[in-house]
């Protein structure tokens, strides 16, 4: 099956190249257009997870409902029991208290039943752990490096494709372009849909958290260590994430934006990005930092 995918990719690559040659003089269409059509962002008054964008998130969503329903049952049972006790044995209704302090049967029951409930929870839960941990045979690997306060993405298979991703500052947000305050970035991470993508996550300075709630991915970015995770995005779209481990004054200003596009568009983007990014690699410059100048000066003078 894997080789089938490889062939398909190769064929797509050829097709894209052919198309590119045919349109050599035309202005290339935006290869990320497919991602703009489907934006998975948080909603106000949300009551549940964001729309699931990967099989991993679908499994998390399923297990969450499973565990939460069991726990709802437990809380409701305790609530009803307490309500009944408070009503039935209030001083007004029950003037003479009993002095029962032991009942072996009931004490055994309230040990055995919770233990069984835990077993019911643990069995599917352990499967999820190993599923989440299985990063074998990825189509490609992206090295994600957290920095104060931006992300750096390096495509291991594409020599030189390594760029930084800064939050768009509040005052430069262009709502007309579909940009979202505090979530949109200047250079999003671009990934193909339908392929297993491995993330090698690390940090260049302090701890950061690489957190993609709609894809079910989260790992600390730890300096000196590479942590791995993976995703497989099922549908073209724009997915958001945020830094989720305190990393200094710009902790809330280093979101993650992922543009997931069909393979052909991805390959077109890679070609374009190689030209755009590799020659003028984007160094972290204060000018592109989303933080106010005074804060940044504060942070860098030490």
């Amino acid at each position: 099956m894997k080789s089938g995918i490889r062939w398909a990719v190769g064929a797509a690559l050829l097709l894209v190249c052919g198309a590119h040659l045919a349109l050599a003089q035309a202005v290339p269409a935006d290869p990320l257009a497919a991602a703009d059509a489907h934006v998975v962002a948080p909603h106000n008054w949300e009551l549940w997870f964001p729309e699931s964008g990967s099989p991993m998130m679908a499994k998390i969503d399923w297990l969450m409902q499973y565990v939460l329903w069991i726990m709802f049952g437990v809380v409701a049972f305790v609530g009803v029991l307490m309500g009944y006790v408070m009503w039935r044995f209030s001083a007004g209704r029950n003037k003479v208290p009993s002095h029962v302090t032991h009942n072996t049967l009931i004490e055994v029951i309230w040990i055995v039943i919770p233990t069984l409930l835990l077993a019911v929870i643990i069995i599917p839960s352990l499967n999820l752990i190993f599923y989440e941990g299985d990063d074998s045979n990825p189509y490609m690997t992206v090295t994600v490096t957290g920095h104060q306060w931006y992300w750096e993405y390096s495509y291991n298979a594409v020599p030189g494709l390594d760029y930084t991703s800064y939050m768009i500052p509040d005052d430069q947000i262009d709502v007309a372009k579909g940009q979202i305050r505090r979530l949109s970035v200047d250079h999003p991470l671009v990934l193909p849909v339908g392929e297993k993508i491995k993330f090698d996550i690390t940090s260049g300075d302090v701890l950061h958290g690489f957190y993609l709630p709609s894809l079910g991915v989260q790992k600390y970015a730890i300096p000196g260590t590479i942590q791995t995770s993976w995703t497989l995005i099922t549908k073209p779209g724009t997915y958001y994430g945020q830094c989720n481990q305190i990393c200094g004054l710009g902790h809330d200003a280093m979101p993650i934006e992922i543009k997931a596009v069909p393979m052909a568009d991805y390959l077109a983007w890679v070609k374009q990005a190689q030209a755009d990014y590799t020659d003028n690699a984007v160094p972290p410059s204060p000018a592109s930092s989303p933080l106010p100048a005074n804060e940044l000066a504060d942070a860098t003078t030490h």
Binding site: N44, E46, W48, I180, R182, S214, Q242, N244
Partner: peptide, 13 residues
């Protein structure tokens, strides 16, 4: 909905 802790400012949603 995915709001991280220790944020002084957050997405409008």
């Amino acid at each position: 909905a995915g709001m991280p802790r220790r944020y002084p400012d957050y997405a409008d949603a």
